[in-house]
Structures are given as C-alpha cells and as structure tokens.
C-alpha cells in the first residue's frame, strides 16, 4: 500500500522501498513478504506500479542489441574472443565478422588483430553467459586513432541523452567525433588536444552528476565557459 521512499531518491541494498502488495518489483529490487527491497545502490524509479532501482555503480551486463566497444583478446581458427568489460568474454564468429569470403586457414589477424578496438553489437546472450557479437551493421568498425576513456556503464543512457541529445551538445561544442559504448567505453577523436580534453571532462562530469536535474543546461553552460 505505501511507498516508503520518494521517486529519484538514492537507496542502498537492503533498504525498504514499499510495503504491501500494490507495487511490482522490477530491476534492482526484490520482494520479501510484504516488502519491496532494493538490491543495489541506485536511484529509485517509480513507473505506475513498477518500482525499479537504476544502479549507480557496477560492471556492464550485456543485453542483446547493445553497441559496445570491445578489445580483441584471442584469435582462433574460426572466431575471435573479445573483452567487452564483462566477467565473461564475448565471441565474434567468422560469419558475423565480415561479409567477405574468408578461405579456410586464412590469417584472421588481417581482419582483427590482438589488441584491436572495435565497435561491435551484441546479438546473443544465453544463460550460461555465452555472448555473441557482430561486426555487420551500420557504424560497426575497427577503431583507428582517437582516445578511449572509461565511464560508469549505468550512466551511459544519461551521457547519450534522449536520442543522443546530451552527447550531441558535447560533440558540437568540442568538434569531436564521439562514440559511446553501452559498456562504458567512450571513443573520442578530435583535431585539437584541448578540445579532446574538454570533451573528456564534460563526459566525466555527466557521469558524476547523472542524477542531478537540469544537467543538460549545466553541461551546455560548462562547455561555453571553458571555450571562452
């Protein structure tokens, strides 16, 4: 019947969010008898009867459809192993790596070599934590040049913004190409080092202050100030 916490408040594991049977526990929460309890540190999000906690911390957990930035860690006869920052390695098969015809015994490192960074998409995740990736798709490619930084994966939606609105502000102000992976890796490429640094700072600022209201305006102001 009763909500014990306010929407958008910060809660910690074990905290009681609601009592009674009126609400339904979703991501980041669980039901224990009459209570709905937070299982992670994060922001409460109440949507009608659904209560969820959006995690403010934690490693990336892959979902089908996510675009991520991964690093090639192993090359086999017919696939590559890719580190996407999860507790388990992801798999890129020959079939999904390229539309080219690859002969048996060909040198796979010609396509993707150890240590290469790629933008790739998650196409499968099963219960045993096997993860399948593809390089076939718009914008998916091996990364050349630029700089990689790391942000908190759960803040990525905020960093990108609705339909890319937040990250576009940063791109325009700093004249940089920026690709944000759902796994928290961000690729920045720009001509001027100070602008790249500024983009970095702005992105880290969004990461730190993701829970604040009016962040879009603040970031615009921040960028304008620094560019004077």
């Amino acid at each position: 019947m009763t909500l014990v916490v306010k929407d958008k408040s910060i809660v910690v594991p074990g905290e009681i969010l609601a009592q009674g049977m009126d609400h339904v526990p979703a991501q980041g929460t669980f039901r224990e008898n009459e209570n709905i309890i937070a299982s992670q540190i994060g922001l409460v999000n109440i949507n009608g009867r659904l209560i969820k906690v959006i995690a403010l911390s934690g490693r990336y957990i892959p979902k089908v459809g996510d675009m991520v930035i991964g690093r090639i860690t192993h090359i086999s006869f017919s696939n590559w192993a890719v580190d996407i920052g999860y507790a388990y390695e992801a798999n890129l098969s020959l079939k999904e790596a390229t539309s080219d015809f690859i002969a048996r015994g060909a040198d796979l490192s010609q396509y993707y070599d150890y240590g290469d960074l790629v933008t790739t998409k998650v196409i499968g995740v099963n219960k045993q934590k096997a993860i399948d990736l593809t390089m076939k798709g718009p914008g998916l490619r091996k990364l050349k040049g630029g700089r990689i930084i790391q942000v908190t994966p759960s803040k990525v939606p905020r960093i990108i913004g609705k339909q890319g609105s937040m990250i576009s502000i940063v791109k325009e102000a700093t004249n940089c190409k920026i690709t944000v992976g759902q796994n928290g890796l961000v690729w920045i490429q720009g001509e001027e080092p100070e602008k790249v640094r500024l983009a970095e700072k702005a992105i880290h600022k969004i990461d730190q202050e993701a829970h604040k209201e009016g962040l879009t305006d603040e970031i615009s102001k921040f960028l304008k100030e620094k560019l004077k």
């Binding site: 594991p13 299982s39 540190i41 911390s57």
Partner: peptide, 11 residues
C-alpha cells in the same frame, strides 16, 4: 561490495 554494484539482499 555495495559500492561495486553487486546485487545484495542487505548490508
């Protein structure tokens, strides 16, 4: 453990 974002039933 909570800071690391792991799912916990309680502290």
């Amino acid at each position: 453990l909570a800071d690391a974002g792991l799912a916990m039933k309680d502290l």
